[in-house]
């Protein structure tokens, strides 16, 4: 591996270490009280102490997120395909969808609780609602990128609209689809945690609210750490899928 490649690999690691070192020594130097900003070492200690509940709640949040995201992939791609395929559907649906998307999803949680009660279902729905729109927009955009010339080439051979869609439209929307997945999955995560903090008795969001109620600030931060790590892993997972499945789109 060349020197510059190795430096590229190490750079993010060094930034992260430097960030925590600065945090650790800064808080020690200024003697910041633990209930304002705990030191990274306090947070790690708290993570060790509460490891098994952290694990349980994190796993719950992960499952909620994955469930919500799975629905949002289906919903987003189906609506995206419809909107991208038919001009009429595009004009009919878009204003409604944009209006819907601009409503902050936190504001919907209380309504979801009235309908479904406390717990997992509102979290799944929130995760889904917050994350389907980018998928929809990207799939629709991808379908619209088919070059006119190619359409002419195939239509002059008597290709049907459905053939164009399968041979050209669908595959060309794939890079857009996968690019939207990695963005959307982090949004889904935001959605489920929002819902958990407002109304749930399980999940990492609930754990953090409970901890902050007891002024156990290190545990709140421990929750944040876990969220950050899961977010990075999900993002990287979908980024990896994207690179594997649509390598042709990248130089």
């Amino acid at each position: 591996m060349s020197r510059s490649r190795r430096r590229e690999r190490l750079a993010p690691l060094i930034t992260i270490l430097a960030f925590f070192a600065l945090w650790e020594f800064g808080t020690r130097l200024l003697d910041v009280p633990v209930f304002i900003l705990p030191k990274p070492t306090d947070i790690v200690a708290s993570m060790q102490r509460w490891w098994s509940p952290l694990q349980m709640h994190a796993l719950h949040t992960l499952m909620t997120t994955v469930a919500g995201f799975a629905i949002s992939i289906v919903l987003g791609s189906v609506l995206g395909l419809v909107v991208g395929y038919s001009k009429t559907a595009h004009q009919a649906l878009y204003p409604l969808l944009i209006g819907f998307n601009s409503v902050p999803k936190v504001a919907l949680v209380p309504i979801l609780i009235i309908w479904f009660g406390l717990g997992t279902i509102p979290a799944i729905i929130t995760a889904c609602l917050i994350s389907f729109f980018p998928i929809l927009v990207n799939v629709a955009t991808g379908l619209a990128t088919v070059p006119q010339e190619l359409e002419d080439v195939l239509r002059s051979l008597g290709a049907r609209k459905s053939e164009l869609f399968i041979k050209v439209g669908l595959p060309s929307s794939m890079p857009y689809f996968f690019a939207s997945l990695k963005v959307s999955v982090t949004l889904a995560f935001v959605g489920s945690i929002i819902s958990e903090t407002v109304a749930s008795n399980r999940g990492i969001g609930y754990l953090m609210i409970a901890a902050s109620g007891r002024f156990d600030v290190p545990l709140v931060f421990a929750g944040l750490f876990v969220i950050a790590v899961m977010g990075i892993l999900l993002y990287e997972g979908f980024a990896f899928l994207e690179r594997k499945l649509t390598a042709w789109a990248y130089r």
Partner: peptide, 14 residues
């Protein structure tokens, strides 16, 4: 019965 080619090659990138 026709074949067509344009200024842009417009090949499918995948």
């Amino acid at each position: 019965i026709v074949g067509m080619a344009f200024q842009k090659a417009s090949l499918l990138p995948w």
